[in-house]
Amino acid sequence: MKFAVLVNEGPYQHQASDTAYQFVHAALQAGHDVMRVFFYHDGVNNGTRLTSPPQDDRHIQKRWSDLAAEHKLDLVLCVAACQRRGIVDEDEMKRNGKDADNIAEGFRISGLGQLIEAGIEADRLITFGD
């Protein structure tokens, strides 16, 4: 079955991103297809590579990036939410005249249309948030 996942909360503050990760991991293990994980609202904060959690804690961003590398997951950050919160890729850096980018490996920035498209194309869309 083809799943799409929506993540509305950032890392560490709320369990939503953790539960979403465990769900996606289990779905992939079971042989399902996860066609997209869309990060919206504060959820886009999962996609900065500049976090340094303590070594005895889980590394939420790295966990997503690793899963994306292993399974060719499509991790999409909502562009409007990113612009408001300072999550920047190279294109956004140039377009908005910023002096750095911070997007993590395996993530990309795109529009809300990607969420609607996921809702249309996936058999099930499941939301994790607060």
């Binding site: 562009v79 529009g111 249309g113 498209e117 809702g119 194309e121």
Partner: peptide, 26 residues
């Protein structure tokens, strides 16, 4: 906002459930 036209031809029923006040959260 830039958006890709969707040419898939599939029409699904989407329900947006709104349970929160405006302004207090986004």
């Amino acid at each position: 906002m830039e958006e890709d036209e969707y040419a898939g031809g599939v029409i699904k029923k989407f329900l947006y459930v709104n349970r929160r006040q405006p302004h207090g959260t986004v």
